[in-house]
Deep mutational scan, measured.
Amino acid sequence: RIEKCYFCSGPIYPGHGMMFVRNDCKVFRFCKSKCHKNFKKKRNPRKVRWTKAFRKAAGKELTV
């Protein structure tokens, strides 16, 4: 099963990425440490230029 990165919305293939479980049992999956570090710094994915959330908000990503 291919999961989605919580921060950048990129695909996470089986055996890859990192799973972060908070004390309230909420699960966050990250494709790379870059995404996990930005999440820990409480960065907003919509303001980080390389994420899909930014591209969609800025009108750069074509949605079908």
Rank of each mutant, 00 (worst) to 15 (best):
R1G: 12
R1L: 14
R1N: 11
I2V: 09
I2A: 06
K4N: 02
C5Y: 00
Y6W: 06
Y6G: 11
F7V: 12
F7C: 06
G10C: 03
G10V: 04
Y13T: 13
Y13H: 09
Y13F: 06
P14D: 08
P14G: 03
H16D: 09
H16C: 10
G17K: 05
G17F: 04
M18D: 12
M18I: 11
M18T: 08
M19K: 05
F20E: 15
F20Q: 05
F20N: 02
F20M: 10
F20R: 01
V21Y: 06
V21G: 03
R22T: 14
R22L: 08
R22H: 10
R22I: 10
N23T: 07
K26T: 11
K26R: 07
V27F: 02
F28M: 12
F28Y: 09
F28K: 02
R29H: 09
R29E: 07
R29C: 06
C31T: 00
C31L: 00
K32H: 06
S33L: 05
S33E: 15
S33G: 05
K34G: 07
K34D: 14
C35L: 00
C35R: 00
H36V: 09
K37E: 15
K37N: 11
N38G: 04
N38S: 08
F39S: 04
K40M: 13
K40Q: 12
K42P: 02
R43H: 14
R43C: 13
R43K: 12
N44Y: 04
P45R: 02
R46H: 10
R46G: 14
K47W: 09
K47A: 10
V48E: 13
R49I: 14
R49Y: 13
W50P: 10
W50D: 15
T51N: 07
K52V: 13
K52A: 10
K52G: 13
A53F: 03
F54W: 05
F54D: 15
R55F: 13
R55G: 15
R55T: 15
K56E: 15
K56V: 13
A57K: 03
A57T: 08
A58Q: 07
A58L: 04
G59D: 14
G59A: 10
G59R: 05
K60H: 09
E61K: 00
E61M: 04
E61T: 01
L62E: 15
T63W: 05
V64K: 05
V64E: 07
